[in-house]
């Protein structure tokens, strides 16, 4: 299978998978709370439904129209660049994880600008909070990834994953464990899950992420939710792949790629279930306690680098 095909496949996987993972997390939460919950495919149906509705656009209409596109394109591009199912994606020598990091940051910037463009108090509030948290997760993310890069001295995921598949014991190294722990916190913060943010809140004052996207409706909202789901799907798959690189296809043949896809889905689903269970067990942190959590993740990442360098 050629690299371009695999890249396209990954974009599709992350888009559909992201929606499904959102559904899985809602389902797990519902079950853990003793409810039946909506079917796992509910987010898919909702996006399809919203697509057919008219889009109300308030102030800053052109920005509101552009934000979902920017979010979808940057996230899709990131999903195409990084190897998730196999390490033969298009231009795999350029599969640098930093590109994905900054593409995701671009998506956050677009969302925040959309929040400010409407000129409402809640939009600005959400943008301000989300950007503050994004600024604080960025260091933990970059240093955590650098910790994973230490053994191979490369931020190139193709190199990293090839080595990890060949040396599976590296997964139990303390540096790896610490880095993955810190990245887990980063992923929870970046996807706006509890205890950092409550994705299903109904009280505006406690909102972080939702406050930015209050003004979208109809087709705009459909595209935006798809973008957010893709973001979640990408971050979860990336973390799952980095934490447990088993099964990543190292050749372009059909069977290994198929195995890679299935295992990727399984790993991401397990991770999503875990995060959903964390959500059930934890209460939302006060906004100004979140920096403590992120600082802890940052220190974990630094420890991971130090330990990785010392114990090599």
């Amino acid at each position: 299978m050629s690299g371009y095909l695999l890249s396209a496949l990954q974009v599709l996987l992350v888009a559909v998978g992201g929606l499904l993972l959102t559904g899985v997390m809602a389902k797990v939460r519902a079950r853990a709370e003793g409810r039946v919950g909506a079917p796992v495919t509910q987010p898919l149906r909702e996006v399809a439904k919203w697509l057919t509705r008219e889009s109300p656009r308030a102030g800053g209409a052109s920005v509101l129209a552009a934000v979902p596109y920017v979010l979808l394109v940057t996230t899709g591009l990131a999903a195409a660049v990084v190897p998730l199912a196999g390490v033969v994606t298009a231009g795999s020598s350029g599969a640098d994880v930093l590109i994905a990091v900054f593409l995701l940051l671009t998506g956050s910037l677009a969302l925040a600008l959309g929040g400010l463009a409407t000129g409402t108090a809640f939009g600005g509030m959400g943008a301000s909070r989300a950007m503050t948290l994004s600024a604080l997760t960025e260091p933990a993310l970059l240093v955590g990834l650098a910790a994973l890069a230490v053994p191979q001295r490369s931020m190139n995921l193709a190199t990293l994953l090839r080595h990890a598949v060949a040396h599976p014991t590296g997964m139990a190294s303390p540096s790896h464990v610490l880095a993955v722990a810190s990245l887990l916190v980063v992923v929870i913060a970046e996807t706006g899950r509890l205890p950092v943010d409550n994705p299903s809140t109904h009280l505006e004052l406690t909102m972080i992420h939702e406050a930015m996207v209050l003004e979208y409706g109809g087709r705009d909202w459909a595209l935006l939710s798809l973008g957010q789901a893709m973001r979640l799907g990408l971050l979860f798959s990336l973390l799952a792949t980095l934490a447990v690189p088993w099964g990543v296809a190292t050749s372009g043949a059909a069977l290994p790629v198929l195995v890679g896809v299935v295992l990727l889905g399984a790993k991401a689903a397990v991770l999503a279930t875990g995060v959903a269970l964390i959500e059930v067990r934890s209460a939302k942190l006060r906004l100004f306690r979140v920096p403590e959590l992120l600082a802890a993740a940052f220190v974990l990442a630094i420890l991971a680098v130090v330990v990785g360098v010392v114990a090599r």
């Binding site: 919203w50 697509l51 057919t52 509705r53 008219e54 889009s55 109300p56 656009r57 308030a58 102030g59 209409a61 129209a65 596109y69 979808l72 394109v73 899709g76 409407t118 000129g119 409402t120 108090a121 809640f122 939009g123 209050l214 003004e215 109809g218 087709r219 459909a222 595209l223």
Partner: peptide, 19 residues
């Protein structure tokens, strides 16, 4: 994305911010 969006509604309504 443009192609995907074309599959949906193309009606855009100018409104006041909901806020």
């Amino acid at each position: 994305v443009v192609l995907a969006a074309r599959g949906g509604s193309r009606v855009v309504r100018a409104t006041r911010a909901w806020a």
